[in-house]
Amino acid sequence: MNGKVAVVTGGSRGLGKAMVRAFAQAGADVVIASRKVEACEELAEEIREEYGRRALPVACNVSDWSQCDALVETAYAEFGKVDVLVNNAGLSPLYPSLDQVSEALFDKVIGVNLKGPFRLSSLIGSRMAAGDGGSIINISSIAAIRPDTNAVPYGAAKAGLNALTEGVAHAFGPKVRCNAIQCGPFATDIAAAWPENAREFLGRQLALGRVGEAEDIVGAAMYFATDASAYCTGTILRLDGGWR
């Protein structure tokens, strides 16, 4: 990825952080976007010191249309291009029951998981298509096809993200490739909210016998970010350890 520029939303922790570090190690400059800019700044400093790459921290709530626009303008002003966009920011707040899901919660889930990726893919994809091309990677979830009762709005948003993936691939092809990584359970920060023994329970549902660790996403992300996947677009790759 020497000479490439990658933008990663939700890039300061969890799966996003693992991808940012992998891209930088492979020679890319990175834009680290998250709601908490302090965490982005901390990771950016690590990237500069460890890999000698340029790293730009940007505060961005992707559910806000204008903040998505500002992120794009900031990235292009700093680097002049974006070669890889990773729509990784996501959330799934807990709720007691479906009838108690508030409109605000529903809108927030759709905003972060679907609205933001749509806006960023539209803006950056159009610039990629007008230039030298690029790769867009959406981080989806097994919930898109098998939603748990505790994550129905989230599953609906991720199903929309899967549809968005194929639509964007056709809208901006052939120069731009757009693919999705459909993740199973990963033991990132979200695991802190899991019930006791959840890791063991989930592991028993998986062919590989364990939940994923953040670094497990790196191989798939590198594949889609590079020419290794030159003939792959509009694809939803399951990365779930073999979910039943």
Rank of each mutant, 00 (worst) to 15 (best):
T9F: 13
G10D: 01
S12N: 15
L15T: 10
K17P: 07
R21T: 15
A22G: 13
A24P: 04
A26P: 12
A26Q: 14
A26M: 02
G27R: 14
A28M: 03
V30W: 09
I32N: 06
S34Q: 02
K36P: 00
E38V: 03
C40D: 06
E42A: 15
E45H: 12
R48A: 10
P57Q: 01
A59E: 04
C60K: 03
N61L: 05
D64I: 14
L71A: 01
L71W: 00
V72I: 00
A75R: 08
A77L: 13
K81A: 05
L85I: 04
V86S: 09
N87G: 07
L91W: 04
S92V: 03
D99L: 12
V101K: 06
V101T: 02
V101Q: 01
S102N: 13
F106C: 00
F106W: 14
D107W: 13
K108S: 15
K115Y: 05
G116H: 12
F118T: 00
L120Y: 05
S121H: 13
G125P: 04
A129C: 07
G134K: 11
I136L: 11
I137F: 11
I137W: 07
N138K: 00
S140P: 08
S141D: 10
I142P: 01
R146E: 06
V152K: 09
A157E: 03
A159V: 02
A159K: 00
N162V: 04
T165I: 02
H170P: 10
P174G: 12
V176H: 05
C178T: 12
G184L: 05
A187C: 06
T188R: 03
A192E: 15
A193D: 15
A193M: 14
A193R: 14
F201R: 15
L208T: 14
V211L: 02
G212M: 09
G212K: 11
G212C: 13
E213K: 13
A214L: 05
D216P: 07
Y223V: 08
F224G: 01
T226W: 07
A228N: 02
S229A: 14
C232Y: 03
T233Q: 06
T235F: 07
I236E: 06
I236T: 00
G241C: 03
G242Q: 06
